[in-house]
């Protein structure tokens, strides 16, 4: 819930930053909601493997017969359930506060559903790479945020297109393609990072 609080507060800062004019807020609503959702996702990333790494249970998990990739996938899924899902539920309310055009809500909802799992999956790579690193929390942000840019582009593009009643299908298909690519590749990269961390 702390993640959602963070999400709400950062979004609520924007009217103070750019002024309360509703047309400006409406124009930037999709981008603000998405950028803040990404920052909120980052907050909890460094905890994804850290506790298990420090108390040694990650080593036990790596030794068990189940492939480490599956375990990473489960971890990323758990991370999504406690951060991605609450963000999806909070996003429409925040979009309303920012006066987002009415045509965008359904698309906002669908791109959040397609996009947030990818955030958790790519985040798993960053979290596993920084296991045992100094200042891991900041480091994760530096590593992961550039990799989030394509998701941001397509997600906001879809919402903007919907608000202008243009076709949203291509954007959504690209988001789905990125998710489909991240689903096998991210656990694989993350698992190899964990293996080298445990060596």
């Amino acid at each position: 819930m702390v993640v959602v609080m963070f999400f709400v507060i950062t979004v609520a800062l924007f009217p103070f930053g750019v002024g309360p004019e509703s047309n400006i807020l409406a124009r930037i609503a999709a981008g603000v909601v998405w950028v803040c959702a990404m920052l909120a996702t980052l907050l909890s990333l460094d905890r994804m493997f850290l506790n298990d790494y420090e108390d040694g249970s990650l080593e036990q998990l790596a030794l068990c017969p189940l492939p480490l990739e599956i375990i990473v996938l489960a971890k990323a899924g758990a991370h999504w359930l406690v951060t991605g899902l609450p963000l999806i539920l909070a996003a429409p309310i925040l979009a309303m506060l920012l006066n987002m055009p009415a045509g965008g809500y359904l698309t906002l909802f669908s791109v959040m559903i397609l996009g947030t799992p990818t955030l958790s999956l790519i985040g798993a790579i960053g979290a596993s790479l920084t296991l045992g690193a100094r200042r891991a929390g900041v480091l994760v942000s530096i590593l992961v945020l550039p990799l989030y840019i394509p998701i941001l582009i397509f997600a906001v593009g879809a919402i903007d297109a919907a608000a202008m009643s243009l076709p949203t299908r291509p954007h959504i298909l690209f988001l789905a393609a990125i998710l489909a690519a991240a689903l096998p590749l991210a656990p694989w990269a993350s698992a190899s990072a964990i293996r080298q961390a445990l060596n």
Binding site: I125, L129, T130, A133, R134, L147, I178, L185
Partner: peptide
């Protein structure tokens, strides 16, 4: 970021590969 330099090199190499996969996606997007 690591006290053990070989750990840093391994982690960073995985990152370099992840980045290389992402460069075309980023360029396209």
């Amino acid at each position: 970021a690591f006290d053990d330099p070989t750990r840093g090199q391994r982690a960073a190499s995985i990152l370099a590969l992840v980045g290389a996969v992402n460069v075309p996606i980023i360029k396209f997007s």
